[in-house]
Amino acid sequence: MKKRISNQKITSNLWFDRNAEEAVNFYMSIFKDAQIGRVAYYGSEGFEIHGMPEGTVLTIEFMIEGQEFVALNGGPHFKFNEAVSFIINCASQEEVDYYWDRLTAGGDEKAQVCGWLKDKFGVSWQIVPEALTDMLQDPDKSKTGRMMSALFKMKKLDLKALEAAYNK
Rank of each mutant, 00 (worst) to 15 (best):
V57D: 10
A131W: 07
E130N: 12
Q67V: 05
Y99Q: 01
P53F: 15
A105C: 07
F62Q: 07
K3Y: 08
W125G: 00
L136H: 12
R146A: 03
A71V: 06
S124L: 09
F62M: 10
H50W: 15
N7Y: 08
T59F: 03
S92D: 09
A91D: 14
E54W: 06
M63L: 13
F26M: 07
A71W: 03
N89K: 12
K160W: 02
W15K: 00
P53M: 15
A40Y: 10
W125L: 01
E82C: 08
E65K: 06
K160R: 02
L14H: 02
A40L: 11
A165S: 01
K143S: 02
K110P: 09
Q93H: 04
D158E: 10
S29H: 04
I64A: 10
C114N: 00
S149T: 15
I60T: 07
E130F: 09
Q93M: 05
D97W: 10
K155Y: 13
M52R: 06
R18H: 12
S92N: 09
K110Q: 14
N73I: 10
L58K: 05
K153W: 12
R18V: 10
N13L: 12
R102E: 15
I5P: 03
D119F: 12
I60W: 07
W116K: 04
E163P: 01
I64M: 11
S124I: 14
S149D: 13
R146C: 05
I36A: 14
K156H: 00
M28C: 04
E130S: 11
V70E: 11
E22P: 01
F31M: 02
K79F: 15
E48F: 13
M135T: 07
I127V: 01
C90N: 11
Y41D: 00
F16G: 00
F47W: 14
E48Q: 15
E48H: 15
V70C: 13
K79S: 15
P53S: 15
A23L: 08
E109N: 06
A165L: 03
Q112W: 10
P76H: 07
D138G: 11
D158F: 06
A164V: 13
W100L: 07
W100G: 02
I36G: 13
D134S: 14
M147Y: 10
F86M: 15
I5W: 02
